[in-house]
């Protein structure tokens, strides 16, 4: 699993730190970091929560057409 650069970019564009996004979706900062680094594959429930906070769709953040 590669790095989730789309999520990192969307988060920084929204002006959110990993800590702030983590607090908004109810997980630890390490979990957000692990998702962005591609070390952890989140559940669909967490993916949806992240999408809602960042105002994007699952396709935008978690679908890599090149994979």
């Amino acid at each position: 699993m590669g790095k989730n650069l789309a999520m990192k970019q969307a988060r920084t564009e929204k002006g959110l730190s990993q800590e702030a996004l983590a607090a908004a979706v109810g997980v630890s900062r390490q979990t957000i970091n692990a998702i962005e680094k591609g070390d952890y594959n989140p559940t669909i429930r967490l993916c949806i929560s992240i999408c809602r906070v960042l105002g994007l769709t699952l396709n935008d953040l978690f679908w890599d057409p090149e994979e």
């Binding site: 109810g26 997980v27 630890s28 979990t31 989140p42 967490l46």
Partner: peptide
């Protein structure tokens, strides 16, 4: 409990 652990943990 809000002070619990998240799914990765």
């Amino acid at each position: 409990d809000l002070g619990g652990y998240d799914e990765r943990q």
